Amino acid sequence: MPKLVNHETRRRELAQALWRVVFRDGVDAVSVRSVAAEAGWSSGALRHYFPDQRELIAAAMRLVTDHIAARIQALEPEGTLEEKAVAYFEQLLPLDEARRTEAEVWFSFVTRARLEPKLASLTRAVNGELRGFISSILAQFPIDDPTAPGRMHALIDGLCLHLLLYPEAVTPADARAQVRAELSGMLR
């Protein structure tokens, strides 16, 4: 009897192998051959799922956003509306090892996307989705400032970079406090 294969699971496994290559060796080390080796596959088997390197990178980028979306959907924060909003915004920050890996891999892809139009369109789409998510959270509050979503988005992006690049200067506790302070300031 032929073996049943879950193709979506296989695609996810390959995208995660790409993450490991990026995290360990950098985005320039990504190739069909390096990812296939990391996954324990042949290059030909990998090409069955991803015909070229660009498709593989795009799938790995989508996997980052899928992880974040799944975490947000599973979240059931308690407390005040403000505490719940902060809990959602914290899902976008690299406050633990898993989110740090996602953020490092994502920023590697964003850098790469500056040179590849197909990947650039994907990063723009994700950026728009992120802005929409932040706007939807802030829409629950009596905030009369149309710049509020952009300011929160910029704060979250900046905190992501600082948490990755300067972890000795910006701790997860600092980042949480800054998000809370920004939200509180918007509500005054």
Results as ranks from 00 to 15, higher is better:
97 E>D: 13
105 V>P: 02
53 Q>Y: 06
117 P>R: 09
107 F>T: 01
35 V>D: 07
51 P>Y: 08
24 R>A: 15
29 A>N: 02
99 R>H: 10
100 R>M: 07
113 A>Y: 09
47 R>Y: 12
44 G>A: 14
25 D>Q: 15
23 F>G: 11
102 E>A: 11
54 R>Q: 14
52 D>K: 03
58 A>D: 04
34 S>E: 06
119 L>W: 09
110 V>G: 10
114 R>F: 10
45 A>R: 06
112 R>W: 14
47 R>G: 00
62 R>L: 09
25 D>H: 10
63 L>W: 02
46 L>V: 05
62 R>M: 03
69 A>E: 15
48 H>Y: 14
41 W>Q: 10
24 R>H: 14
90 E>G: 11
32 V>S: 11
88 Y>S: 05
83 E>W: 04
119 L>C: 04
84 K>F: 07
20 R>N: 07
92 L>G: 07
23 F>W: 00
108 S>A: 15
34 S>V: 01
45 A>H: 13
74 A>D: 03
95 L>Y: 07
31 S>D: 03
117 P>Q: 12
41 W>A: 11
26 G>K: 07
88 Y>E: 14
27 V>I: 15
95 L>A: 07
66 D>N: 02
103 A>Q: 04
29 A>W: 05
20 R>C: 01
29 A>G: 04
65 T>G: 09
77 P>K: 03
106 W>C: 10
71 R>D: 15
27 V>W: 04
42 S>H: 12
86 V>S: 14
88 Y>K: 11
53 Q>W: 06
100 R>K: 05
35 V>W: 08
111 T>V: 04
46 L>E: 05
106 W>N: 10
118 K>I: 03
117 P>E: 13
34 S>K: 00
56 L>G: 04
37 A>K: 11
102 E>N: 13
82 E>A: 12
26 G>W: 09
41 W>Y: 14
46 L>S: 07
43 S>I: 01
104 E>S: 10
84 K>W: 02
88 Y>W: 12
22 V>N: 09
71 R>W: 01
114 R>N: 10
72 I>A: 14
72 I>R: 15
73 Q>P: 01
68 I>C: 12
94 P>L: 06
116 E>L: 13
19 W>M: 01
98 A>H: 07
22 V>F: 07
53 Q>R: 15
92 L>E: 06
52 D>G: 10
91 Q>W: 04
80 T>Y: 05
112 R>M: 10
81 L>C: 01
67 H>N: 14
34 S>R: 03
73 Q>L: 08
48 H>W: 08
65 T>H: 13
37 A>Q: 11
74 A>Q: 05
30 V>I: 09
74 A>Y: 00
101 T>K: 00
63 L>T: 04
104 E>T: 00
98 A>Y: 01
88 Y>C: 12
61 M>R: 05
39 A>K: 05
34 S>T: 12
83 E>T: 07
65 T>K: 11
93 L>A: 05
83 E>L: 08
50 F>V: 04
117 P>Y: 06
90 E>D: 15
91 Q>E: 15
35 V>T: 04
39 A>V: 07
119 L>G: 14
96 D>I: 01
38 E>M: 08
24 R>G: 11
